[in-house]
Design a protein around this nucleic acid. Structure first.
Lengths: 243, 243
DNA sequence: AATCGATGGACCATTTTTGGACCATCTGAC
DNA sequence: GTCAGATGGTCCAAAAATGGTCCATCGATT
């Protein structure tokens, strides 16, 4: 398969010009307004410009703009009030207060115990061959750590991230990305080499391989059980160091 | 205004002056459009430019563009609807895009089934008297909906949010806030009154009360079981409407 | 010569957009 | 309180947009 590269070089992050940006239909206008709301151009409780003004701005008929706004109201981004206007109902998550700072390692592992076993069940149900290959690669890499706690830790994160991808569920993947982010930042102060002894790493790796085999065999019960044991083990090991 | 000449072959190494002016066959156009979709130029659910406009842009006949689009439809990247347009079916960029837009009601309930039962277990372990009082209040309010689907839905969200607060786990609370946000915005296309019949609401309320009692009694197994049944029920009801 | 892909039309059925009109409600000036 | 203006809610018929289909033709390749 050839790959005819006929695109001019593009700076990463620079948006590729989109053909037909001028053609304004209801879906496009809705998409644009949604982006502006989520980006905070219109903040919580702000009033949107009047429909007639928006229509003029987008170069569309008022009915088209109304159809677009209707979609935003259906998705609970807006509230419309007759005679007053359309008001933003979407709360931007201003509470960006660093969630990782507020979470202890024990609380983190409790959340993982709650989420990951059933995540494995979804992974068994939805993983395709490509997902399994990626998981296999991650498995090989994490097993190549030679007892290095730091390397194992990175590989372990990647392996569990693969598991999240196997679910093919965008929300689950999004959630686990954040769990992993918290994990990455909340455990920096743990003495990894205290917990991740070569023996412990060997045990974890055995569980990883069992989990992989269970998913390949589409055995949901085994997968959830293994992951549950895996995380309970990690919780116990954690408590052994932080009594 | 006419396209004067079409050249066929490109000399290797010759600089490509501009995208789309020449040497466009169906395979090339398909490849270019596929790249743009995967790169996110056209996001999930966006509408592609009309065939006639694409034809003009690529300097090809409309039939050629149709053949290209046909390939993308065959590989499930697109869906075409007569009279409306071609819409992106590929969901790739869960990162920057609006997660609520990318999540289907079924995917949402799958995540809730994965998270909430074990969330109930944490709630049993960590809820204090104040949490239980708040839960009691939410319970009373949701039972006061008198069969109104919309009111029940709001109350139900609040009740489950209380459950998340009962865990006293900041990360779990943070995650569930986002799950709830997605839930609030992803069920727009569901006919709530189709699912939330007065009988269904009554059943859900009974489960809510059972759950509350189980938490008060500090019975973790019962709580997880009830919540699991509760959500499985919701999933079944959802599938009954969206077969 | 035969074949295959591309072309440039034309026409069809469906959906969306348009441009207007009128109404009910709310706000602010008086 | 009254009134004028602004705003969203609704309805309608005509026009435009859009994908689906078919066909005669052309050019290059086989």
């Amino acid at each position: 398969m050839n790959r005819p590269r006929l695109q001019t070089a593009r700076v990463p992050g620079e948006a590729e010009p989109r053909l037909g940006a001028r053609s304004m239909n209801a879906a496009t206008i809705a998409s644009e307004l949604r982006r502006q709301i989520i980006d905070g151009v219109y903040a919580y409780r702000d009033r949107l410009p009047p429909e007639r003004l928006l229509a003029e701005h987008f170069g569309a008929a008022r009915g088209t703009v109304r159809a677009a706004i209707q979609r935003l109201e259906d998705t609970n981004l807006l509230t419309r009030e007759p005679g007053r206007g359309a008001f933003v109902r979407y709360r931007g998550h201003a509470e960006r207060d660093d969630i990782a700072e507020l979470t202890s390692p024990l609380e983190l592992i409790d959340v993982r115990i709650a989420v990951e076993p059933d995540m494995a069940r979804l992974a068994v149900r939805h993983a395709n061959a490509q997902d399994l290959n990626r998981m296999r690669d991650a498995l090989d890499r994490v097993e190549d750590c030679n007892g290095d706690a730091e390397v194992f830790s990175r590989g372990d994160e990647a392996f569990h991230m693969c598991l999240a991808e196997c679910t093919r569920n965008p929300l689950m993947l999004w959630l686990y990305r954040h769990i992993n982010e918290v994990r990455h930042r909340t455990q920096w102060n743990i003495r990894k080499d205290k917990i991740l002894t070569p023996e412990a790493i060997e045990g974890y790796n055995r569980q990883h391989r069992d989990l992989y085999n269970a998913i390949v065999a589409r055995d949901a019960e085994a997968a959830t059980q293994i992951l549950n044991d895996h995380l309970k083990q990690a919780r116990t090991d954690l408590l052994g160091v932080h009594p």
